[in-house]
Structures are given as C-alpha cells and as structure tokens.
Write a protein that binds this DNA or RNA. Sequence first.
RNA 1: GGGCGAGUAGCUCAGUGGCUAGAGCGUCCGCCUUACACGCGGGAGGUCACAGGUUCAAGUCCUGUCUCGCCCACCA
Length: 710
Amino acid sequence: MMEKITKVSNGVKLSKVYNPKNVEGKTYKLWLKSGFFNPDNLPGKRKKVFTILLPPPNITGSLHMGHALNATIQDILIRKKRMEGLKTLWLPGTDHAGIATQNVVEKQLKKEGKTRFDLGKKELIERIWQWKEKYGDIILEQLKKLGVSCDWSRTCFTMDKNYKRAVKEVFLHYYKKGWIYQGERVVNWCPRCETSLSDLELEYKEEKGKLYYIKYPVKTQNSKPKAQNIIVATTRPETMLGDTAVAVNPKDKRYEKFFKKKTSIILPLMKREIPIIKDWLVDPKFGTGAVKVTPAHDLRDYQIALKHKLPLISVIDNRGKMKKNVPLSYRGLSVLEAREKIVRDLKKEGKIVKIKDYNHRIPVCYRCKTKIEFLPSKQWFLKMEKLAKVAKDAVKKGKVKFYPKRFEKTYFDWLDNIRDWCISRQIWWGHKIPLKGETDVLDTWFSSALWPFATLGWPKKTKDLKEFYPSDVLSTARDIINLWVARMIFSGIEFMGEVPFKKVFVHPIVLTKTGQRMSKSLGTGIDPMNLIKEYGADATRFGLAWQITELQDIKFGEDNIVMGKKFCNKIWNATRFVMLQTAKLKVKNEKLKITIENSKLTSADKKILKALDKTIKSVSKDIEDFQFGRAARTLYNFFWHEFCDKYIEVSKSQILNPKTQNQTRKILLYVLVTSLKLLHPFMPFITEEIYQKLPIENKKTVLMIERWPQ
RNA sequence: GGGCGAGUAGCUCAGUGGCUAGAGCGUCCGCCUUACACGCGGGAGGUCACAGGUUCAAGUCCUGUCUCGCCCACCA
C-alpha cells in the first residue's frame, strides 16, 4: 500500500502514519554518533553524577520480557537524569554465568555424542569461550533495538582480565581474614552438573511421591528377643542403607519403653546395629513419629547427627548412583532403581507395612532442574556472620532503601537465618579458586557480588571508581534479592567502605496474560523482539511502562503495546498538525516559553498551560518514585485528551482570528516540544525523530540532551 | 506452618476518605469533519470477593471470612 505523504512544513514531509522501521535504526546511530551515552562526552558542567549498573544478563539466553521491562525502567531513569543535567553513566555488561553457560555448551556436545569428560577441562573451557564470542552479546545487541542509552565503551564481562583480578583480590582478602575455610559438609549436590549448590540455587518442584512405612526390628539387651518393631516412614527408602540411627521426639510416650532398657535396632537389608535416640527436631505427628536418620543424605538428619555424634555413611555418589559400600545387588544403581529394588526386597522380607501416596516438594537444580541429592563433600565456605550483620545494618539505617519497602522483609528474613556460604563449585567454567592445588571454581554469584565496583576498575583506584561509585539505583527482579542484591551490599561495604547503591527498585515479574510463567520450553514466552518488530520499540516500551505498578506481577497484555502504537501515531499526527500551523513561525528554542509568559492569553491557552505545568510536576515526581505506570497514564491523558482533543480543536478557530493567531501557534509549538521532552524517556525514538524536524532555531543536536522541563 | 500481595466493566488494570467509580483493549451505533479511520462522536456494560465495624461521608480505614498468586521454613 502506498503511504500518503503530506507536505507539512519547510519542505519537511511526514507520512500520515508513524513508521518505526524508518526511524529507529537511524536514530540510534545518531545517538551513538553524538557520543552522549558516555558521561565524559556530555556537554556543560555537570557536577552531579547519576549511575546505574545494568544487571548483567547471562551470556546464555536471549532477551526476554523481564529484560525488556527492566531495561525500559533503567533507560527512563537515566534519560531523565541526563536531561536534568546530571553526569549520567549507565554501565552495561554480561555475566559468565558458570553453571548455566557450561550447561548450554554441554548440551551442544551431547548432540555430538560427547560429554565434557571426553573433551577434558582445557578444551571445554576453550569451547565455552568460542561460544561466548559468538553468542555472548546477543542480549546487549537486542537491548540496543529497544533504544537503551548504555555507555557501550565501558561494557564489562565478569571474566575480563581486570574482573578476574578483582575476584582473586576479594577471595584472598577474606582468606587472610580467616573468613574462608574448607570443610566436609553435607551439601546440596546436583548429580547432573556434578557440583555443589548453595541453598539459593535450589528450586522446588511438586512431586507425586510415596510414603513408605518400614518395619525396623528392635533388639533389647538382656531379654529374650521378641518380635518387636519400630515402624519408620520415609519417602526415600534407598537412603536407609546409610541409616545410622532412628530418632523420636523426646516427649513421645509411645516410644518411652525403648529407652528403659538398652535397646538398639537392626537395620534391615544391612543387618547393621544402630541406636534409637531422642531429638526435638522429630515431629511426633508426622508418619509414625519415628524417623530413620541418614546423616549423609539429609540436611536435618545431618543436624541431628552432629548433635548426637552419629557417624556418616554415604551410600550415594556424585552422579547419583549407589556406592560400593552397599550390598552387591544395589551397587551402581541409580537412586530410583535402587529405591524400586529395595522396596521389592523389603516386601519379600515382610518389612513393608504400607505405602501411601504422598505429594511433597522436592529440591531441583535451578539451572538444569535435576533432582538434588544431599551428600557429604569437601567444600569452601565463606563465614557469613559479620557480613550478614553489615548488610542488615545498611538497610536498617536507610543507607539502602527498597522500593516497594515490603521487599526489605525478604532481605532480612534471609540474613537473619543465614548459613555460611558454600562458594566452591565443581564445574570447569568460572573463576578458579586462587589457592595452590585447588581445582574448583567459585560460585558465579561470588563474582556477581562485586559488579558495582569491579566494573569500575577496582582493585585499581580508577577515576571511574571515584566518580561513579556508589551507584544510585539498582533495578532488579525480586527473585535475586538475596542471591545477588544482599551479596553486593556486603561486598560493597567490605571493599569500598560504602553501600553499592542507594535505592533498590524491585520491579514486577512479567507473566502471561493468564498468569503463567513465561517460559520458552512451555511455549508461553513472548519475545520482546517480535513486539518491537510489530509495534515498534517506543510502543513496546510505553506499553510496558504503563503496566508497572507496585504489584508483584504483571499479567502481560499485548493490548497495552497496541495502545502504545496508537499513541505513537497520535503524537505523530499532532505533530503534523502543529508543523502545518507553525511552518512560518520563526522562534528560537530558548525564547519560546518566555514570549508566551509575557502575552495575553485566552482561557483555553491558560488551561492548557496550566495542565502542562501540572503534568510536568507529576511526571517528574512519579519517575523519581518509580511510579512508571502512573507517569505513563498522566502523559497519555494530557497529550491525547487535553492537548489533542481540546486545545488543538480550539486552536483551529483561534488561528482564524488574527488577534490570537500568532500566540496560538507559539503555544501549540511550546506544548508539543515540552511534551516531547517529557515523553522522551519513555519513547525515545519517535520524540527524537520529531525533535529533529521541528521548525525551531538554536536546537540542541539531540533531544536526548535537551533540558528537562521545570 | 509463617509472611507478603491481589480480588473493581467481557479481558488486563488505574483509582493516595469527598461530585454520577475510570482507562486501555474488546463490543454496539453513527461518521473518510481538510493532524490522525492506528481516527472522531455517541452507547451498552460494575451489589468495587463476602460479612461486620469506624465516619457526616468507605472501592479507599479497621476486624473477620473466602478465593487466587508469590516468598520463606529441616515435616522425613
């Protein structure tokens, strides 16, 4: 279809419909050429600094709605501050994402019929670097399409040379302080990744399981053997091979008799003699009130074992297979195979009392969703006691503020119940532990925790570090408040002596319209790049901003992006009208407002100027308060209903009247320009494109550095 | 088990004690009115989850109940 082109002003032609495809690429190039994404190039004296660090996306994956939402938020903040005359830095980068990235490359290998062990460590790491070079920056490239104004010259990667140095420095600092220690502990273990995981790296999945009631024969000393049993209930019969006790609640009268005489239990299948003990951790109401204790493969049992000095017998290996210390017929079986066989064997012995259906939540690896095993393993830990206290104090004293405030609770809850941080991982991709003879790597989050200062050059004392630390706002999702935010806070204080950011904005999570999680594998995800293609980047951004409220979730409706697109078109056409009317007007940028203030005004003039003033104030405040949805609504209502519906209509007759003609034209132009400035952080492309075409003298090179309206 | 959030039009949501409760999308009717049919004008559509209470006044504040969602916790 042919586009109608109307000649509107000074030979400038605007099509009837706004077409983002003709604008976005070229406008982004204009911004890059201006150099103003880099704070060092910004014009004028800018004493105040405003810094945002992009939460580094993993080098795996591609852009999803969460990234798009968060990038929109940060770009709105940074563009407004830049226009307000601040020296603004938005620093981008990517995270090496240890397990996640290694998994992606391992999947590739699997297609070639190979495992990481076939390749060996050196070659695997090489493959991952190749992969990173090829795909690692996809998300950053996609963010450019969204219009983000990051300083690309400062782009960081968590395994850059300098970043590696920072990680090493931090580790050794803690090590020298005696806060890092090695210990044999029962840890969360992913048998697929073959690595330990921290508690925060677990996810939980509902599982339809069984609860098995098993007879454990009792042997009482100095009395004739009677056919007495204790019945224990368990969801994991295979772990019984490693049982070292049976525990009951101290108050449980049912089992009192077993403590009167020296009594022990003969563990079925193993024929091992194990004690019966009392512990408060046992809930008398669950199952039979008697619980088998497998310290090597259960965290609670491990706690009990420490208290009662019970031995650990590990029967499951690193790959989730039964070890050599179990009876021959179970050796080498997977956990599930062993479970089936053990239940069969117990049945033969008449030891199974009953089997109940039982639904429960089981932990899975957050990266590959494999069921977690608990097993004893030698790992490195970071003592959390002092660091947690420091992190808590910073928020209590208001040095870091959460928006919305209620998320402080998530933070405190975790820190109040914290355990030492298991920082070693048995994967190959990551920062090596900088001690002699150590082959493990560090938890990915150990390096992510340093993002606010390692990106600025620390441990070197750089100019950037001095100027841009601490940052002002961290915008992030609630699921990494503890995994990442808390750890950045204590790291920042420990190494910089100051919190890494003043405000934490916890943005909503984007769900599907029906409230499901957006997930590629479920096919419920919406690709923001498709939205940009179909509706344009500005429409996508505006539609997203529109939906940002204090709620924890956004049920994403494409309707809002449609609305954004229509709004773009409205802005475009209002511009066509204004330019048609103001073609011959000669005004200087800086004089526009002044000449209006000094003139006689009609009631319609006064009304629109007053409404504009109100809009400026409320939008400015709403952005400051992270109320992006409200700001978007205010702008929409003002522009569409006050300016277009009312003032533009009135202006048609005011322009016919010679007395009000000139004044009306100036007001049209003034309101349009001011609206463009206010809209720019939300819709940078269309506003910049229009600004470039406006019939005003002495304009700035780009709208991006125009002064924010007061 | 503990905590947090939500429940308002067909759908997704605004509504920060005070006119007749609003928007976007959808829907119905009429308009190519010279900025815009991605538009303009008009209409239908709501017991504001439920039950009490406070107040001159409650969608909004308080108490309780129900439903949904999220987070945390060692229920085997």
